[in-house]
């Protein structure tokens, strides 16, 4: 079974995000990037399938900041092939999905497992767009995959902890929300070794002339703290004030 895992770097939300002067995008110069957390789960699920029944796992990413490191980390965890898609600066998920579909068109795949979503996709999530460009079915918000004899059984999560089970023949694209297991950890030394031993293949994106169909009119920060009355002071003072509020409200 050939499994493709597209991976993507996203801004680390622990850091303050700044908006550019035009008010239309983030100020990207000082952004700290990290792997989209759902990609960790997608890769884990792929590697679990590989461990269980053998599979060839390809990690693929569009060229961009810090992407080599993310690909090498995937190799250190067990990905067999690394691919970087070059020649595209995707400004939308539609473009990214189109580029990915162009490249996957020339590869063999049974399962495409993306992260379910990321924090910056204004024009939709990749799994479904990519599936449609490829002409294959899709299932999003997946929390577990079992494979047997050319078909897979997946769990898709609804609200309230309710789960729907689906069976699908291959190929199919999945938006992975959570792997069955907590994603494996890989020490930095192993990633460093992978950066020496593993090879990143570069493949050109080709024609990506599709559009998100909408323009950003304005990007801004919502008014933070608009709702909350802030409680100042040391931890002790703050705790005392919180207790006072709880007493006032008859909670304590």
């Amino acid at each position: 079974m050939n499994i493709i895992v597209p991976i993507k770097q996203v801004p680390d939300l622990v850091e303050e995000l700044e908006i550019n002067a035009a008010g239309t995008d983030l100020d990207r110069e000082w952004l700290k990037m990290k792997l989209n957390e759902f990609d960790d789960h997608a890769l884990e699920e792929a590697l679990l399938l590989k461990d269980e029944q053998g599979a060839h796992v390809t990690a693929i990413a569009l060229d961009g900041d810090d992407i080599d490191k993310a690909l090498f980390a995937a190799a250190a965890k067990g990905a067999d092939r690394l691919v970087k898609v070059t020649g595209v600066q995707a400004g939308s998920t539609h473009e990214a999905a189109r580029a990915m579909a162009n490249v996957l068109g020339g590869m063999e795949y049974d399962l495409v497992m993306t992260g379910v979503q990321s924090v910056d996709d204004r024009d939709g999530q990749m799994a479904v767009l990519l599936a449609h460009y490829l002409g294959i079915p899709h299932i999003s918000v997946v929390t577990g995959v079992q494979a047997a004899g050319g078909s897979i059984t997946v769990h898709k999560e609804y609200g309230g902890g309710m789960v729907a089970e689906f069976e699908a023949s291959l190929p199919v694209a999945l938006g992975i929300q959570a792997a069955r297991e907590t994603p494996r950890y890989v020490p930095v030394a192993k990633v460093r070794r992978a950066s020496r031993d593993a090879n990143i293949e570069e493949i050109a994106a080709g024609d990506v002339s599709v559009s998100a169909g909408s323009a950003v009119a304005k990007m801004y920060k919502p008014e933070t703290g608009a709702g909350a009355e802030m409680i100042e002071g040391s931890a002790e003072e703050q705790a005392a004030k919180v207790l006072e509020i709880l007493k006032q409200k008859g909670i304590k």
Binding site: G124, Q125, A127, L129, V141, K156, A212
Partner: peptide, 21 residues
């Protein structure tokens, strides 16, 4: 939602329709 996320993208690609999430 979980269901909506599996619906919107398809129509966007099929009909070349803007999709805002």
């Amino acid at each position: 939602t979980s269901m909506g996320m599996d619906i919107a993208g398809g129509a966007s690609v099929d009909h070349n329709m803007p999709y805002i999430a």
